[in-house]
Simulated scan of single mutants.
Amino acid sequence: MTTLLHIECSPRKQRSASLEVARSFIERYQQNHPQTQVETLDLWNMSLADLDEEAMNAKYAVLAGTPLTATQQTAWDQLKALAAPLYRADVLVLSVPLWNFSIPYKLKHFIDLVSHQDILFSFDPQSGLQGLLVGKTAVVAYARGLDYSAQSSTPAERFDFQKPFVEAWLNFIGVHDVHALLVEKTILGNEVDRDSRRDASLQAQHLADSLTR
């Protein structure tokens, strides 16, 4: 049985373009693979702990190879538990709106909490850094208000710190089979927004048809 994890990064549940496109992919994927189990991490409806002093002390104890105190171990176990759904999943789906040319702070918070040595990556002096999430597929639905493509007549492309960041992170933690779904120009009027969502949703369905596990 395949497990699909949807990481929802937008608080706009009804109007979110990234969620709309991601759900188009998930629905078609479930149609094609009825035994798929879908899990959801809604970053806006869950409690994300602070990366506080005990958690940071635990991180550096792990880096140094020294024993953790009881409070450090508790903090470290919380971070590992937050990352556990990523390990259970065969397919990762992220719905990511662009905020201020980058990603929502909730997603950055999540990434900061789970991206540590011995949680999502390992380090060896000889071989260097190695991502631990191997053999997984990621699908990322990106929503942007403007056209950030290389074909844009504006300089918007160089302000895109959304897609490059997410895909750099996925590659870093070991996920290299990454597929992007783009819904752009969502602030250029209702008609343009509607057409962009429709085209991206069709692309999502075609992608779901092409993926097999």
Rank of each mutant, 00 (worst) to 15 (best):
Met1Trp: 06
Thr2Lys: 15
Thr2Ile: 15
Leu4Ser: 04
His6Thr: 10
Ser10Arg: 13
Arg12Pro: 01
Gln14Ser: 14
Gln14Glu: 14
Arg15Leu: 15
Ser16Asn: 08
Ser18Leu: 04
Leu19Trp: 07
Leu19Gly: 13
Ala22Arg: 11
Ala22Trp: 06
Ser24Val: 09
Phe25Ile: 07
Glu27Met: 13
Arg28Ala: 05
Gln30Thr: 05
Gln30Val: 09
Asn32Glu: 11
Thr36Phe: 08
Gln37Pro: 05
Val38Phe: 05
Val38Pro: 11
Thr40Pro: 07
Asp42His: 08
Leu51Trp: 02
Asp52Ala: 13
Asp52Thr: 10
Glu53Ile: 12
Glu53Asp: 12
Glu54Phe: 10
Ala58His: 03
Lys59Gln: 13
Tyr60Phe: 15
Ala61Asp: 07
Val62Tyr: 03
Thr66Met: 11
Leu68Ser: 11
Ala70Tyr: 11
Thr71Asn: 13
Gln72Pro: 04
Gln73Lys: 15
Trp76Met: 06
Lys80Val: 05
Ala81Trp: 06
Leu82Ser: 02
Ala83Arg: 08
Leu86Ile: 05
Ala89Trp: 01
Asp90Leu: 07
Asp90Phe: 06
Asp90Thr: 02
Val91Arg: 15
Ser95Val: 01
Ser95Ile: 05
Val96Lys: 04
Pro97Arg: 12
Leu98Tyr: 08
Trp99Leu: 10
Asn100Ile: 02
Asn100Lys: 09
Asn100Gly: 05
Ser102Thr: 13
Ser102Val: 01
Pro104Met: 05
Tyr105Val: 06
Lys106Thr: 12
Ile111His: 04
Leu113Met: 03
Val114Asp: 06
Val114Gln: 09
Ser115Pro: 02
Gln117Ile: 10
Ile119Lys: 11
Ile119Glu: 07
Leu120Pro: 01
Pro125Ile: 08
Gln126Ile: 13
Val134Asp: 08
Val134Ala: 14
Lys136Tyr: 02
Ala138Asn: 10
Val139Pro: 07
Val139Met: 05
Val139Leu: 06
Ala141Phe: 00
Tyr142Gly: 05
Tyr142Ser: 04
Ala143Tyr: 02
Arg144Lys: 12
Arg144Leu: 06
Gly145Glu: 00
Leu146Val: 08
Tyr148Asp: 06
Ser149Ala: 09
Ala150Asp: 12
Ser153Leu: 13
Ser153Gly: 15
Ser153Cys: 09
Pro155Lys: 00
Pro155Glu: 01
Ala156Asn: 13
Ala156Thr: 07
Phe161Ile: 07
Phe161Asp: 01
Gln162His: 11
Gln162Thr: 04
Lys163Arg: 15
Lys163Asp: 06
Pro164Asn: 09
Phe165Ile: 03
Val166Asp: 05
Ala168Pro: 01
Trp169Pro: 00
Trp169Ser: 00
Trp169Met: 00
Leu170Trp: 09
Ile173Phe: 00
Val175Ser: 07
Val175Tyr: 10
His176Pro: 00
Leu181Met: 09
Leu182Phe: 13
Val183Met: 08
Glu184Gly: 02
Glu184His: 02
Glu184Asp: 09
Glu184Asn: 05
Thr186Trp: 07
Leu188Gln: 15
Leu188Val: 06
Gly189Val: 03
Asn190Arg: 15
Val192Tyr: 06
Asp193Ser: 14
Arg197Leu: 12
Arg198Tyr: 11
Ala200Asp: 11
Leu202Cys: 11
Gln203Asp: 14
Leu207Thr: 06
Leu211Thr: 08
Arg213Asn: 10
